[in-house]
């Protein structure tokens, strides 16, 4: 019997994988992709809670619509920033973008 716990575990694994990617990757686009993984893990959690805790209200699903909206705006602005950084510094590797290092 597949229950809420299974979905929460899948979402937790997805979140941890995304966290690992954010912390280890050196390419800005790869970091954006890992952030997308983490956002999707949160969406799975919201839909699973909506399905198993109070299915008749659909509040979790309505919330996921807003999350997807914010994520889409985040990707658009993030990639525009990446283009800008690439145009100004000729690189997207964060090791070389150390102008604000202490």
């Amino acid at each position: 019997m597949i229950g809420l716990v299974h979905y929460l575990l899948v979402a937790a694994m997805l979140f941890v994988i995304g966290l690992y990617g954010v912390l280890t990757k050196r390419n800005i686009v790869a970091i954006l992709m890992s952030i997308e993984l983490m956002l999707n893990a949160v969406n799975i959690n919201l839909v699973a809670f909506s399905r198993f805790i109070n299915p008749e209200l659909l509040l979790g699903q309505a919330f996921v619509v807003f999350t997807i909206t914010v994520a889409a705006a985040e990707v658009a602005v993030g990639l525009a920033l990446v283009f800008r950084v690439y145009h100004d510094h000729d690189t997207v590797h964060i090791d070389k973008l150390n102008g604000m290092r202490w």
Partner: peptide, 15 residues
């Protein structure tokens, strides 16, 4: 955390 939290499942169906 997931294993020790007591979840309150609902038995009603999704519309």
């Amino acid at each position: 955390v997931i294993a020790t939290t007591p979840w309150h499942y609902s038995t009603s169906m999704v519309p």
